[in-house]
Design a protein around this nucleic acid. Structure first.
Length: 569
RNA sequence: GCACCCGUAGCUCAGUGGAUAGAGCAGCCGAUUUCUAAUCGGCCGGUCGCAGGUUCGAUCCCUGCCGGGUGCGCCA
């Protein structure tokens, strides 16, 4: 990475210039905000000048003299109040490009310390369809898992399915009274939802039904054979259907350990917490108080109800134990909506009290809102289904593909699938995760502008050039980057490494999406400005190398977002 | 009441303790005998919610306020 190399060179320059850096002073080099000044810039002289109370410009000049970057830069300037601006040499860029083309990891170095990271995301409920609300957790979690793996972490993805809870009382009662077996066969989740809603409505009208449901639930929890069998079938049917959906989404889980997996561990866990003095009984319920944490002083974490039932937090604590003990997790990432922020703060505090040192992060995201700015609901009071969005997206892509010539029907269907699904994923991932956003069909399914098809199209353009080449081409290392469009593209390509690492610094896929958009944009401009196939000799070779690198970084980068590519469109 | 998140162009959103705050969409002008136009070039469009403070420098950090959202003991 140029940024890392320049940072260490700068650090060395301070030393050789005899300038002692204050404790904790971090020399920083960043990609230039304005390319008029250079490719990379540092404000180290300004921040240090402030601390040492010396003239920042003079300090910058002093460092500039001590800098040893002849192999990388053709120009270093001191500008404005004391910026150090670095302009990379064409030779250094060319060399970097040569490395990217040969490297499976496209110039992205592995992390210094590889960790075992459990990523907890998606987590749908059994008997509830996946709706647009699941888009965020599923796509963000999948993307972060892919990136973490790519830069060298060991990642375990775990789908903490909601397969246990009070809703099963209603489902059990409904199963026994109003279940349509044929409908269940055809679309299990749909039928289970119908049953659930129907019984739910009954309970509101008739108190007796509610009691019956509660009894069914108690029987299930006590291990009643019939209810347990029904429950198992519900879970199995729903899981089958969920797997199909995830396959369609190209999202992979190593585990589907639902809440029920931890049932047996809840009672001993609570006993243990009581015995160790971490938990106490309050108003009949078992709670963990955080009297030493001011913000949580009046917000205890409940782990057992006064009626003996266990809670969300209890299961999550047992889940943490499993992830630490069985999987040796160094980190656990929870990709769960922002409204649950308090829950996770409590959870992590309990873990801390228990002496668990695993790094736990709540990777929160904002809500999807309707056009009125309120939590998303359609007129009927239901969210839009996840599959409904995907199907619509594929359909809209198919309309565009249909106008194309030279594709078989199968190819057209395949392209529409890739582009439609990609568009939905990109619409989500290009957004800052904390922003609440208004759901919009047109935005989610847009095919022009800053969208997945725009990026895929750039990739397709790289591929079409190589298809037109006769025979094998051997790219040689004698690159001559001269045209501004070539240079801009080479710079962008070199920055893939920085971007990929930056994403995990703050768990923000939109940084990668933004980078890939800029790369595609730069490539499209290059494509218009620099004809590849009509060029000759070293220029042609250089441009082909640029195309090859762009091709591979786009494919890999989109892959990290969970978006597939197509060779033609 | 307390806590957290958000407030940037007509709309939807990026962005950063620094240099002239950027995209997409919408609107307008232009480019196609093509390496496939799902493209490119250009124009139009902003007191970065308001007021203070810290700083050489704040849209970004701090405080207060206004507006929107969410969450706060027996759901998950």
């Amino acid at each position: 990475m140029f940024r890392a190399v320049l940072t260490s060179r700068l650090q060395a320059a301070f030393t050789s210039a005899g300038i002692a850096l204050p404790e904790g002073f971090a020399v920083s080099v960043v990609i230039a905000s304005d390319t008029r000044f250079g490719d990379y810039q540092s404000n180290a002289a300004m921040t240090l000048g402030k601390q040492l109370k010396t003239n920042p410009r003079a300090l910058a000049e002093q460092i500039k003299v001590a800098l040893q970057v002849d192999d990388l830069c053709e120009k270093i300037t001191v500008d404005g109040p004391g910026f150090l601006n670095f302009t990379l040499s064409a030779a250094a860029l060319g060399q970097k490009l040569g490395l990217i083309v040969k490297d499976d990891h496209l110039g992205v170095p592995p992390v210094e310390k590889s960790q075992r990271i459990v990523v907890d995301f998606s987590a749908p409920n059994i008997a509830k369809p996946m709706h647009v609300g699941h888009i965020r957790s599923t796509f963000i979690g999948d993307c972060l898992a892919r990136i973490a793996r790519f830069i060298g972490h060991t990642v375990i993805t775990d789908n903490h399915i909601g397969d246990w809870g009070t809703q099963f009382g209603m489902i059990l009662h409904g199963w026994k009274t109003i279940l349509d077996h044929a409908a269940l066969e055809k679309d299990p989740i749909h039928e289970l939802v119908r049953v659930y809603k129907n019984v739910n409505a009954q309970t509101k009208a008739d108190e007796a039904v509610l009691t019956t449901c509660r009894n069914e639930l108690v029987k299930l929890q006590q291990g009643d054979a019939e209810n347990l069998d029904i429950w198992k079938r519900c879970v199995a049917l729903s899981l089958d259907q969920l797997r199909t959906i995830y396959e369609k989404l190209d999202v992979l889980f190593d585990h589907f350990l639902g809440e029920s997996h931890y049932n047996d561990q809840l009672a001993p866990l609570v006993e243990n917490l009581l015995a160790s003095g971490i938990a106490e009984i309050s108003d009949g319920a078992t709670c963990v108080f955080f009297r030493d944490v001011p913000e949580l002083a009046d917000k205890p974490c409940l782990i057992r109800k006064s009626d003996g039932g266990f809670l969300y937090a209890t299961t999550d604590l047992a889940t943490i134990d499993h992830r630490i003990n069985a999987w040796q997790a160094d980190e656990i990432w929870y990709v769960v909506g922002a409204p649950q922020e308090l829950h996770f703060r409590q959870l992590f505090q309990v873990a801390k009290k228990r002496g668990q040192t695993t790094v736990m992060r709540h990777i929160a995201f904002g809500s999807i809102l309707g056009q009125d700015g309120k939590m998303f609901k359609t007129r009927s009071g239901e969210s839009v289904g996840l599959l409904e969005v995907l199907d619509e997206a594929v359909e809209r892509a198919a309309v565009v593909v249909a106008e194309r010539e030279g594709f078989s029907d199968d190819e057209k269907a395949q392209i529409a699938q890739v582009i439609g699904t990609g568009a939905v994923k990109y619409a989500e991932l290009s957004q800052h995760r904390m922003t609440d956003y208004k759901f919009s069909w047109d935005k989610m399914l847009a095919l022009q502008g800053n969208t997945a098809p725009y990026l895929i199209n750039a990739y397709v353009r790289t591929k079409s050039i190589f298809r037109k080449l006769d025979g094998e081409v051997t790219l040689t290392p004698d690159l001559t980057i001269t045209d501004p469009a070539e240079r801009a593209l080479a710079m962008k390509l070199a920055q893939f490494a920085e971007t990929t690492h930056d994403v995990l610094f703050d768990h923000r896929p939109n940084l990668l999406a933004g980078y890939l958009y800029e790369l595609a944009d730069t490539y499209h401009s290059f494509y218009e400005a620099c004809n590849v196939l009509r060029a000759e000799g070293a220029v042609r070779n250089t441009r082909l190398t640029l195309c090859d690198a762009t091709s591979r970084i786009l494919k890999t980068g989109l892959g990290l977002l969970g978006i597939q590519t197509t060779e033609r469109m």
